[in-house]
Amino acid sequence: MSGGSNFVAPGQYRHLRACMVCSVVQTQQKFIKDGCPNCEDYLNFRGQPDFVDDCTSPVFEGLITLRDPKNSWVAKWQRLDGYRKGVYAVKVSGNLPVEASEMLAAHNIEYRPRDGSDINQD
């Protein structure tokens, strides 16, 4: 994403939201302005505050700052390899709206929830 720094000042923490698809964490404002750095191609967040609200969640746990997605085991484990550098959440709660799931499906992307519900699948 071009949008400069991913840094968020402590005062802004309450505006933080995590993308339910890729778990990237940024402020709501940034989601609206710049979209999701990873999912923007399939889900058009940019300029759609309502859609951002639906597809991102303020309820998330564990923050990861990812500097080297290719070599990081953490990224691999979290299935973040191939994503951009930035801040991600370990767990994101919330249910992705149906439209968003359909949009992903249209791009042959299987949505895997990041709320821990898949823990027993492997």
Binding site: L63, I64, L66, R67, N71, S72
Partner: peptide, 13 residues
Amino acid sequence: PLQITSAFERGNT
């Protein structure tokens, strides 16, 4: 540059 690959926290856990 920083040579770390990532850093994370587990909050309440």
